[in-house]
Simulated scan of single mutants.
Amino acid sequence: MPWYVIRTKPQHEVKSAQFLEKLGVEVFCPVITEVRQWSDRKKKVTVPLFKSYVFANLLEKDRNMVFQAPGVLSFLNWLQKPAIAKDEEIDAIKSWLKNDRLDNIKVNRLQPGDEVEIKSGKLANKKAVIKEVGNKKLKLILTDLGWTLTANIQDLV
């Protein structure tokens, strides 16, 4: 079954995903923990990794059931077809969220605009374009999805 990309109203990602799970749909709503600063305190909050998007593993014939969930707007389309995320891409996002260490990585003066090929792991032989290179983070554009991902590089050798 393919992973469809579903567009939601802003700040409805988690609620929509929970409702879809109750309907029996396999849903993936990646979340991260951020530290937010208020005038009197700091607080850790859980926020969606992709604002206004969730992933649903569905058969083509079951696609309309997602509209029963509050906050679901539509399917994301790519070239007039519903956007589909590959299993390897979903697995890679899950792996990154678990903070798995990246092994056998060598960084040599990477520049924005450089095209890189991932040599091993779940996204082996996939190409990405470097958007930004920072001291501790590297932003990549996965050309297949058109999304920007940030990888921590502080622990890389």
Rank of each mutant, 00 (worst) to 15 (best):
D114S: 10
E132P: 04
V72G: 05
K86T: 09
G113R: 06
D91T: 11
S39L: 14
K42E: 14
K51F: 10
V45S: 08
G121H: 06
K139H: 10
P70I: 01
K22D: 11
W38I: 02
V72T: 12
V54P: 04
A56P: 04
F50A: 00
G134F: 11
N108C: 07
N125T: 12
A124D: 05
Q80W: 13
E88I: 05
P70T: 06
R101L: 14
R36S: 06
E115I: 15
I118P: 03
E13T: 04
D144Q: 11
V66I: 15
D114A: 09
L76A: 12
A85F: 12
G71F: 11
R109P: 01
W147C: 02
K119T: 06
K22C: 03
V66W: 08
S16T: 11
E26Q: 14
D91W: 13
Q111K: 15
F19N: 03
G134V: 01
N104R: 13
L145C: 04
S95M: 06
L79V: 11
S120Q: 13
F50V: 10
P82G: 04
Q11K: 15
F19M: 06
E88Q: 11
E88D: 15
E88G: 02
I84M: 03
A83G: 08
F75K: 03
P2I: 00
A17T: 11
Y53I: 02
S74M: 05
K9C: 01
E115W: 13
D91S: 12
M1H: 09
A151I: 14
K98N: 14
A124N: 11
E60C: 05
V54I: 15
K86P: 00
E117V: 11
L73C: 07
A85P: 00
L23F: 03
S120Y: 14
C29W: 06
Q18Y: 09
K61G: 00
E60G: 01
P82I: 02
L59E: 14
P48H: 10
G121Y: 02
R101M: 12
R7C: 08
A85N: 00
N125R: 15
E132M: 08
S16N: 09
L49G: 04
T143S: 14
V107L: 15
V72F: 01
K42H: 06
V5L: 04
F67A: 01
V25N: 01
L58T: 05
K98V: 08
K51E: 12
E60D: 13
K51L: 04
V35E: 15
N64C: 05
L23P: 02
A83S: 10
P70R: 12
W3P: 01
V27I: 13
R41L: 09
R63L: 15
D62W: 02
T46H: 05
K86G: 00
R41H: 14
P82L: 03
D87K: 09
N108V: 13
A92P: 01
L20W: 01
D91M: 10
W147T: 03
V25P: 00
V72M: 08
V107Q: 03
N104P: 00
V27D: 03
Q154P: 00
V157S: 10
I105K: 04
V14S: 10
N99T: 12
Q37V: 15
V31F: 00
S120V: 12
D100T: 07
P2D: 01
T150D: 01
I153K: 09
L140P: 07
P30V: 05
V45K: 13
P48F: 08
G71V: 02
E13M: 08
I105M: 14
